[in-house]
Amino acid sequence: MYASLLFLISICAGFLGALLGIGGGIIVVPALTILFGVNIRYAIAASLISIIATSSGAAASFLRDHLTNLRLAVLLELGTVAGAMVGFLISSQISTAWLYITFGGFLLFSGVMMLRRKGDAVSTVDHPWSERLRLAGQFMNEKGQLIQYKVERVPLGLFMMFFAGVLSALLGIGSGIFKVLAMDGAMKIPMKISSATSNFMIGVTATASAGAFLLRGDIRPEVTCPVSLGIIVGSWIGARVMPRLPAQTIKKVFVVMLTVVAFQMLYRGFTHE
């Protein structure tokens, strides 16, 4: 009965995740801890598995559509994997109370980021590393025009990816918001390419810590299977109905919900013994 309920909630999480372009972790971790009383460490581990499932499915589509910059993804994965290792080590030492507080803070930040206007600058300047590794690329926009882009500030992007990896392992999230911020904000890569490349990388980032969590015994099938299956089903439905739903209105309602949940997580952190 409880497992069925978790499965249904995870379908909703996957659906909203696909609709709003966010990972399910933002919804799954608070749902598991607040609604089902699951310890946040098991919730984080379960969330990482669901991220791998959705990212692998999404990566397949983006590769097929030729939106993923494979060369850039490989370079930046070096940063996220190193960050995930550090994040896993921090998560082993950090108290449960601080996990709640960090997660609450992250939810508030995500809410702000979701309301931000997304820029779509196309850089014409190539960083020397980008030239050496041939990271620049091209894509077809909605009007059918071929857009060529270059990649700026590669070391800064790589550094930001390291922090995205730390947060992914620490909080059981895909860190897509930070990855897109690094690529779109710092490296001036067009949003379409940033989103596709970020989605492609999320699975590898999550795997870096999920493998360690699995071997340590934190990933339990009773919690993880209903969550992952629900998110796979939900995101599949979400991706298909996305064009027909008012995503902007849903996003505003979701940000309000996110803020309430953020304060609940912070409260739990500050009152946790």
């Binding site: 009965m1 409880y2 497992a3 009383g37 310890n39 098991y42 015994g217 009773e222 992952s228």
Partner: peptide, 26 residues
């Protein structure tokens, strides 16, 4: 995972009760 979920499925009781506290078992 679906096969495992179905085989593990229990109608009664709270399967998440055991996960309220964290036990590190390899």
């Amino acid at each position: 995972m679906l096969a495992g979920f179905v085989l593990n499925f229990q109608l009664r009781g709270n399967p998440f009760f055991n996960f309220e506290t964290y036990d590190r078992i390899p």
